[in-house]
Amino acid sequence: MIEAMSGALLCAGAFFYFAGTLGLLRFPDIYSRLHALAKADNLGLGFILAGLALQADSLAVALKLLVIWPLSLAASAGVSYAIARRADRLGIAPWQKEAR
């Protein structure tokens, strides 16, 4: 039972990683690629960590796995803001649906 749940969480995680890579490749400008990278990959990591924590041998190991997630969330939130701010300062215009 726990194995099946864990397996499902792991597969969901892999899917979000895949979606993040897909977004990075398909989205048209740096801003939208940052969206894909930060949001999808972090969700993928969250699912994988949750799946592994379910099977962990001890409470400390499960908590350690789960503590990686907020650390990586905080890191990628800060990094994507820093890169977006820099891109804006450098005057990089966002991609628009229609040519202006």
Partner: peptide
């Protein structure tokens, strides 16, 4: 390339 470096980071953790 920087975005891909970040992708390597987050995917590498997974």
């Amino acid at each position: 390339p920087m975005l891909v470096a970040l992708l390597f980071g987050s995917t590498g953790v997974g």
